[in-house]
Amino acid sequence: MPDMDLLLLSRWLTPVRDFLVPRVGAGARIGFIPTASSIYPDQAWLDLDRGSLRDQGFEVVDVDPELVSAATFTRALGEIDAVFVSGGNVFHLLGALRHAGADRALVDAVRRGLPYIGVSAGACVTGPDIAPLALLDDPAEAAPLTSTTGLELIDVTVVPHAEGTVGGRGRIDRTRQEFADHRLHFLRDDEALVISGGTTTVIAG
Rank of each mutant, 00 (worst) to 15 (best):
S147Y: 03
Y116T: 04
L7G: 01
V63A: 02
V16E: 01
A36D: 04
D5P: 08
L46V: 11
S86I: 11
G113Y: 02
L93Q: 08
D49A: 14
L114W: 02
F84P: 01
A204Q: 14
R111G: 00
A26M: 12
P34L: 13
V83L: 09
L193V: 15
T74K: 14
L77P: 00
R169I: 14
L77D: 05
V156Y: 11
V85K: 00
G27K: 08
L193F: 06
F58D: 01
R98S: 03
T149W: 04
L8D: 02
V83P: 00
S10G: 14
V156Q: 10
A134N: 09
V125I: 15
G95C: 06
R171L: 14
E152D: 15
L187R: 05
A109H: 07
D173Y: 01
G57V: 10
T165P: 05
G205A: 09
M1C: 08
D3L: 13
T200S: 13
A28Y: 01
V85C: 05
F186N: 10
S52F: 07
A123G: 11
L48I: 15
V166C: 06
F73P: 09
S196E: 12
L48R: 15
G150K: 01
V110Q: 01
D129K: 06
E66A: 14
T74V: 04
D155F: 08
A100C: 03
L94N: 10
R112W: 03
G168P: 07
T199L: 09
Q56F: 10
Q177T: 14
L133W: 02
R50L: 06
L93E: 08
A204L: 12
A105R: 06
D64F: 10
V24G: 10
A192H: 02
D190G: 05
A131E: 13
A134M: 12
P128I: 05
F19D: 00
L13C: 08
F179W: 14
S86M: 07
S38D: 09
W12E: 13
P22F: 02
D55I: 09
G198E: 08
R11Y: 06
